[in-house]
Simulated scan of single mutants.
Amino acid sequence: MMKKIGIASNHLIHPTERFGTNFVDYIQRDYVTGLRQAGTLPIVLPLGDPKDAEDYISGVDGLLLSGGQGVTPILYGEEPLAEVAETDIYRDQFEIALIKAAQKAGKPVLGICRGMQVINVALGGNLYQDIYQQAGATEKHNQYPTSWEIPTHHVTTTDDSWLREILGKRFAVNSFHHQGIHEPGSQLKVVAKSDDQVVEGIESSDGRIIGVEFHPEMMRATHPEFQKIFDYFAKLAQVDK
């Protein structure tokens, strides 16, 4: 039987021409495809009440957290800077509850871009609200309008890390963010950085929680090596803790 991976959905905050209300929960198809290709059964989890997180996690074997809005700074004890763009505290609070429930249940978690950032906040870390103003970033970490599947800057991984194991010491990635990890949360270590020292990968001390700042789901079709991230995560879900 295939392992079930819960994907926490994003939430359409603003009405669109097609959807006249904001009552829409969704997930980009690329995340689903990556998990399916890894031999798992993706289950999209609608935005819910944090008190229901343990029930949601009880029905899956792992949790994937996708990209999207910035994480609300007040959740890690800071007042928002002017550079902070759209946030969604309801999504933040629900995903933080999901992460804590998954950790409690010993189920693996994969965070991608925003997903890695919210993992860090959930485990007591904080973020740079703007990596250019606060961390001195010099590279282009939001490549728009360059097509999303094209790698645009390099990262270097640390020895004995999960990313070094599957993708090697140095490789190019895509990039769509202006926030980033500042101080790592409890039991988290940094396993990859860009050349301007922005955190690009994390791993928990038990190896059950992993994250990347780039978007492998967007690159995997044209750069198949990035499917290895989903394959690695699927293997974590095969191991019961």
Results as ranks from 00 to 15, higher is better:
158 T>K: 08
173 V>Q: 02
128 Y>M: 09
108 P>M: 15
194 S>K: 06
181 I>S: 01
145 P>M: 10
197 Q>G: 08
131 I>F: 04
193 K>S: 06
138 T>K: 11
220 R>M: 11
235 K>W: 07
170 R>K: 09
122 A>L: 07
124 G>M: 13
159 D>A: 13
134 Q>C: 11
207 G>W: 15
168 G>I: 07
198 V>L: 12
159 D>I: 11
164 R>D: 13
100 K>N: 14
140 K>M: 14
158 T>P: 09
185 G>V: 08
208 R>W: 05
139 E>N: 15
167 L>K: 03
102 A>P: 09
169 K>V: 06
233 F>E: 03
97 A>S: 14
138 T>M: 14
176 F>W: 06
148 W>C: 13
161 S>F: 03
156 T>Y: 03
138 T>Y: 11
157 T>S: 04
112 I>C: 05
191 V>Q: 04
173 V>L: 06
136 G>W: 04
127 L>W: 04
102 A>M: 06
115 G>H: 05
225 E>Y: 14
153 H>G: 11
184 P>D: 07
101 A>P: 09
194 S>P: 14
201 G>N: 05
110 L>Y: 04
108 P>L: 12
195 D>F: 05
172 A>W: 00
122 A>R: 00
109 V>S: 07
119 I>R: 01
141 H>P: 04
98 L>H: 09
165 E>I: 06
156 T>I: 10
139 E>Y: 09
139 E>C: 14
137 A>T: 11
196 D>G: 04
222 T>I: 11
191 V>T: 06
145 P>K: 13
221 A>C: 12
207 G>R: 15
114 R>K: 07
130 D>K: 05
163 L>T: 01
172 A>K: 04
214 F>W: 07
